[in-house]
Simulated scan of single mutants.
Amino acid sequence: MEHHILKVALGVDVSKDNLAVCLCRLTVNLTKEFEDPFEVSNDLPGFKKLIRWLDKQVASRENLWIVMESTGIYHEAFVYYLYEAGFNVSVMQSGRVKRYAQSLDQRSKTDALDSRMLAMLGCERALPLWTPPDPILRELKGLSRERSFLLKEKQIEKNRLHASEHSVYSNKRELRRYKQRLKLIARQLEEIEKEMMELINASSYLKGRIKHLESIPGISFVSAATVVGETLGFTGFTNAKQLTSYAGFDVVLKESGAYKGKTRISKKGNKNIRRALYMPAMTAVRCNPTLKKFYERVKPTKAKPMIALVAVERKLLVLMYSLWKNEINYDPEYEQKKTARTEVLAAQDRSNLALTSS
């Protein structure tokens, strides 16, 4: 039976307590053969039960591809277990899975159908192989998420304190507790930023690359560390377009017949990156000559100044990605040098054309 099978894929729909799985075989006739879907528990006994079943179904683990959707933290224990067991694993972003699902003639949505859809995706597409992220980057991401949470809590407490101070029925003990909570949050934010600094300084590789990002006017250490942590060192991105889509900076436009929609960013991405780049963009339009010119050029063409600021945020993210990949510092005269090179090449082309014509 194995000789007429081109590819075998296991689709796994992950939830907090269970794993819904479905096995798909792609034959040489390009037809798909499915095993009946079933569920196992999302814990170690369930993992072992599934592996025993898989070893009976496939001749070699190397010929099997396991596909699942990224689900926050619930898939993590399973994907690490599979990686250590030697399986090929792909963890797909929800946006890509959703677009694939929309292309199918499938109106219902259940865990079993989702696992079947993921198995089909594994058979039909060449998917990227998942590898564990650097432990330091993983810890850095956790710290940046904790810091983001505390910043939101700080704003909430400040708003409550302001409301209480201006209330007719203001209570001194209540005000004292609000102020105490704000002091605690401020102290914990300092601790987190110190831990982020210590974590990066412990790695000469990360320390050097973060310095490249800090060379951009407007980018602070915390902003650079947050973006690096959220992207796990820009791993998994092969071009800037993928990165901007991941951050939700990709531009979308809806038009149909006489209807002409407005262009906007999708916001279907990592909101922590967008939040981390807001203040750097505000600083960049004042302190970075290149981005200041870009902002002033774009701003009059947009209905709201905020749209131009978002364009600066996107520009900053792409610039950080470029400096990280090339391991170089920011060059404020890069655009001028690029223009000069273009003019020199254009002059050479005109000269060559004139010689050819004569």
Rank of each mutant, 00 (worst) to 15 (best):
Ile5Tyr: 09
Ile5His: 01
Ile5Pro: 05
Leu6Lys: 15
Lys7Ala: 13
Val8His: 02
Val8Asn: 06
Ala9Leu: 10
Leu10Gly: 01
Val12Gly: 12
Asp13His: 07
Asp13Trp: 01
Leu19Trp: 09
Ala20Thr: 06
Cys24Tyr: 07
Asn29Ala: 15
Asn29Ser: 15
Leu30Gly: 00
Glu33Leu: 04
Phe34Val: 04
Glu35Ser: 10
Pro45Thr: 01
Lys48Leu: 07
Lys48Cys: 04
Ile51Arg: 05
Leu54Met: 08
Ala59Cys: 00
Ala59Gly: 09
Glu62Gln: 10
Leu64Val: 06
Leu64Glu: 00
Val67Asn: 01
Glu69Ala: 07
Ser70Trp: 06
Ser70Lys: 03
Thr71His: 09
His75Glu: 15
Phe78His: 04
Tyr81Cys: 00
Ala85Pro: 02
Val89Gln: 06
Met92Ala: 06
Gly95Leu: 15
Arg96Glu: 11
Arg96Ser: 13
Asp105Ala: 12
Ala112His: 10
Ala112Glu: 12
Asp114Leu: 03
Met117Tyr: 00
Met117Glu: 01
Met120Cys: 06
Met120Thr: 08
Leu121Trp: 07
Leu121Ser: 00
Pro128Leu: 07
Pro135Leu: 12
Ile136Met: 10
Leu137Phe: 09
Arg138Asp: 09
Glu139Asp: 10
Glu139Arg: 11
Leu140His: 11
Lys141Ile: 00
Gly142Leu: 13
Arg147Phe: 04
Ser148Lys: 04
Leu150Lys: 06
Glu157Ser: 03
Val168Ile: 05
Val168Glu: 09
Tyr169Glu: 15
Lys172Asn: 06
Arg176Ala: 15
Arg177Ala: 07
Tyr178Thr: 02
Arg181Asp: 06
Leu182Asp: 13
Lys183Ala: 15
Lys183Phe: 04
Glu190Asn: 12
Glu191Met: 13
Met196Leu: 05
Met197Glu: 10
Leu199Asn: 09
Ile200Tyr: 07
Asn201Thr: 12
Asn201Phe: 02
Ser204Val: 06
Gly208Arg: 14
Ile216Gly: 14
Ala225Asp: 09
Val227Glu: 05
Glu230Ile: 02
Thr231Lys: 08
Leu232Trp: 04
Thr235Arg: 13
Gly236Leu: 00
Gly236Cys: 01
Ala240Gly: 10
Ser245His: 05
Ala247Val: 04
Gly248Thr: 12
Val251Phe: 03
Val252Asn: 05
Val252Lys: 11
Val252Ile: 15
Glu255Trp: 02
Gly257His: 03
Lys260His: 14
Gly261Ser: 13
Lys262Phe: 05
Lys262Pro: 09
Lys267Arg: 15
Lys267Gly: 00
Lys267Asp: 03
Gly269Cys: 03
Asn270Gln: 10
Asn272Trp: 08
Arg274Ser: 05
Leu277Asn: 02
Met279Asn: 00
Pro280Glu: 05
Asn288Thr: 13
Asn288Arg: 09
Thr290Met: 12
Leu291Lys: 04
Lys292Thr: 12
Phe294Trp: 11
Phe294Ala: 15
Tyr295Val: 12
Val298Asp: 05
Val298Ile: 15
Lys299Pro: 14
Pro300Lys: 13
Thr301Gln: 14
Thr301Trp: 03
Ala303Phe: 02
Ile307Ala: 14
Ala308Arg: 14
Leu309Lys: 11
Val310Gln: 08
Trp324Leu: 07
Lys325Val: 15
Glu327Gln: 14
Glu327Leu: 04
Ala340Ile: 14
Ala340Thr: 12
Ala340Val: 08
Arg341Ser: 05
Val344Cys: 00
Leu345Ser: 01
Ala347Met: 09
Ala347Phe: 01
Asn352Tyr: 12
Asn352Gly: 00
Ala354Arg: 13
Leu355Ile: 12
Ser358Arg: 11
